[in-house]
Simulated assay, not measured.
Amino acid sequence: MSVSPAKFVQDVRAEATKVTWPTRRATLVTTGAVLAMATMTSVFFFVVDQIIGLGVRELFGLGG
C-alpha cells in the first residue's frame, strides 16, 4: 500500500479545515485559568510543605 506525499498533504489540509480553532479571547481566558490554577496549587503545596516541615522539626527537636 503506497500513498503519495502529495495525497498525504492534501488529506492533511482537508482535515485541518475541519478543525474548530479557538478564538484569541478563548485562548487567553484558558491560559489565564491554567496559570491561576498552577499558582494556587504551588502556593497550596508550599504551605503544606512548611506545615509538615514544622511538624517534623517539632517532633524531632531540630528547630532553632
Rank of each mutant, 00 (worst) to 15 (best):
M1Q: 03
M1A: 07
M1D: 09
S2A: 12
V3P: 00
S4E: 02
S4A: 04
P5T: 02
P5G: 12
P5L: 12
P5W: 05
A6Q: 14
A6G: 03
A6V: 14
K7S: 07
K7G: 00
F8N: 00
F8I: 09
V9E: 07
V9T: 03
Q10I: 02
Q10H: 07
Q10G: 04
Q10L: 06
D11P: 00
V12D: 00
V12N: 01
A14R: 06
A14N: 10
A14Q: 12
E15P: 00
E15G: 01
E15V: 02
E15M: 11
E15T: 00
E15C: 04
A16F: 10
T17I: 03
T17N: 09
V19C: 06
V19G: 02
T20N: 05
T20S: 09
T20Y: 00
W21C: 01
P22E: 00
P22C: 03
T23N: 05
T23I: 07
T23M: 08
A26C: 03
A26N: 09
T27V: 15
T27H: 04
L28A: 07
V29I: 15
V29E: 14
T30W: 13
T30S: 13
G32D: 03
G32C: 07
G32Q: 01
G32M: 02
A33S: 09
A33H: 04
V34F: 14
V34R: 07
L35H: 03
A36L: 15
A36I: 10
M37H: 01
T39N: 03
M40E: 05
S42K: 08
S42P: 01
S42Q: 13
V43C: 09
V43G: 01
F45E: 12
F46H: 09
D49Q: 12
D49W: 14
Q50F: 15
Q50P: 06
I51N: 06
I52Y: 11
I52K: 05
I52R: 10
G53T: 11
L54G: 10
G55M: 13
G55P: 10
V56K: 15
V56M: 13
V56N: 10
R57H: 11
R57L: 11
R57I: 00
E58D: 08
L59G: 05
L59D: 13
L59M: 14
F60Q: 05
F60N: 07
G61D: 04
G61E: 04
L62R: 08
